[in-house]
Simulated assay, not measured.
Amino acid sequence: MSLQTLVGLAPLTVAGAAAMTFGAAYVRGLTGFGMAIILVPLLGLIMTPGEAVVLGILLQLLIGPVGIRIILADADRATALPIALLAMATTPIGMVALHATTPDLARLLITIVAVGAFVAVLLPKQAAGHRPGRGAVAGTGIASGILTGFAAMPGPPVVPFYLRRHLEPKVARASMLLIFFGTAIAGTLAALWVGIATRRLFLLAVILFVPMWLGNYVGARHFGRVPPHVWQAMVAVVLGVAAVSAVVRLLN
């Protein structure tokens, strides 16, 4: 049985998806986020937005356990755990919305999300020692869950939540990765419930696991070798590039 028969994509298209996945996973390993923000719009060029969202969630599920011991040790669990639980609970809402949305509207909304994340991370930092209240934690978790289900993008509410606080990069990075693993679990279950997680997408996720693991490994190796202010600047650049590319794809 040919590769195209198994996953519905030509071998060269799968190779292109592997290259996209490697690059997005490198960003994830380096910054703690960004894989879905970068990858889902790119995958949308070779499949429907709904399929791209589900594939993005499946890939995040597969990569989630990698380095989980370090993630649990470094994360700000006082905020990361409640945000993750709320996000997991609200992910099905976004999945239902995606299932009921036309592809063109889905592309527009995903573009708005990408642009909004870039703008939010540019907002001034909170005062030193600031601890977010329950409302901020709850709002971040709910928004992250809905965006997970709708766009496989839990990051837009979560990244500014941590980047605007005075935290060590390793704490911010681990906190985000912990939340994203939780949303990947919930997103996969919701996709199965709605019926849009197909055998073909599962097989494609398994095929793309190797380039994803390699990209994440290289990115994680580079993490910590740059000063904190450079790391934060790189985060902003990643969000900016994702926002610009999303707008360009929408206009085209």
Rank of each mutant, 00 (worst) to 15 (best):
251 L>R: 03
184 A>L: 12
238 V>Q: 13
225 R>N: 14
200 R>F: 11
212 M>N: 14
131 R>P: 07
179 I>Q: 13
141 G>D: 01
150 F>M: 00
176 M>V: 06
226 V>E: 13
135 G>T: 09
127 A>C: 11
202 F>R: 08
125 K>E: 11
243 A>M: 01
248 V>Y: 14
168 E>G: 08
232 Q>E: 11
165 R>A: 12
164 R>V: 02
213 W>R: 07
244 V>Q: 04
131 R>A: 07
193 W>K: 06
215 G>Y: 08
132 P>Y: 04
159 V>G: 04
238 V>T: 11
218 V>L: 05
244 V>L: 04
166 H>N: 12
173 R>Y: 13
128 A>R: 08
172 A>E: 05
150 F>L: 04
175 S>D: 13
206 V>F: 10
176 M>Y: 09
127 A>L: 13
225 R>T: 08
187 G>Y: 00
160 P>W: 02
135 G>Q: 13
139 G>Q: 04
144 S>W: 00
136 A>P: 10
250 L>K: 03
164 R>P: 01
126 Q>S: 10
150 F>Y: 01
167 L>H: 13
175 S>K: 06
227 P>R: 08
157 P>W: 06
214 L>F: 08
134 R>Y: 15
152 A>M: 09
155 G>M: 00
145 G>K: 01
129 G>M: 06
200 R>P: 14
229 H>Y: 15
241 V>C: 01
225 R>S: 12
245 S>T: 08
240 G>N: 03
119 V>D: 06
245 S>G: 11
170 K>Y: 09
132 P>G: 03
223 F>K: 10
221 R>F: 13
248 V>E: 05
251 L>C: 14
194 V>G: 00
221 R>Y: 14
131 R>G: 07
163 L>H: 00
125 K>H: 10
137 V>N: 03
202 F>T: 13
233 A>Q: 09
217 Y>T: 10
208 L>G: 06
123 L>Y: 10
207 I>T: 15
225 R>Y: 15
118 F>L: 02
230 V>R: 13
132 P>W: 03
130 H>T: 09
228 P>C: 04
179 I>H: 08
234 M>K: 08
162 Y>D: 02
142 I>F: 00
153 M>K: 02
192 L>K: 14
191 A>F: 10
162 Y>V: 01
217 Y>D: 14
136 A>R: 07
200 R>W: 10
236 A>P: 11
117 A>G: 07
229 H>C: 12
200 R>H: 13
197 A>Y: 09
223 F>A: 14
210 V>I: 11
176 M>N: 07
231 W>G: 04
159 V>M: 04
226 V>A: 15
155 G>K: 01
145 G>C: 06
190 A>L: 03
121 V>Y: 03
174 A>S: 09
209 F>K: 14
150 F>W: 03
243 A>P: 12
203 L>H: 05
218 V>C: 11
209 F>V: 13
